[in-house]
Amino acid sequence: MKVRERWPRFEAVGATALFVVFDDPALLRRTLLRELDDLPFPVLVDRERRHYTGWGLQRAPWWKIWMDPNVYRVYGRLLQAGERLTIGGVDLLQLGGDFVVGPDQHIAYARPQTRDDRPPVAELLRAATDAAGGD
């Protein structure tokens, strides 16, 4: 979670963050969050993915996921954590996205995923800075 590493820069411009996941919270505590104590922002759980749909986030075509080497890195991390990869339990095709919402509750930055990638943290920080009216 690279945003966390540069979180003081986000705080410096007065930004906050909300991370949204659809995984089982118990699984998250054993994997993603295992080494991330005291996150400075909430991790919200959307098990039914209603907000993923409401924010226009789509499911990828299978080939955009299965032909992406990054996917196998994630699986390796899960296996290292002792997880069994039960395909039926997780929608591997669900995409995410990053948005910056301004103080006026309007979208200041939008980058819905079209494949399994994320924008550079510097780009998100710049968007948050602009939304805050900073330099």
Binding site: V20, L78, D91
Partner: peptide, 11 residues
């Protein structure tokens, strides 16, 4: 405040 909203794919 500006809010970064990040939807993650999975775990």
């Amino acid at each position: 405040s500006p809010v970064l909203v990040s939807f993650l794919r999975h775990a």
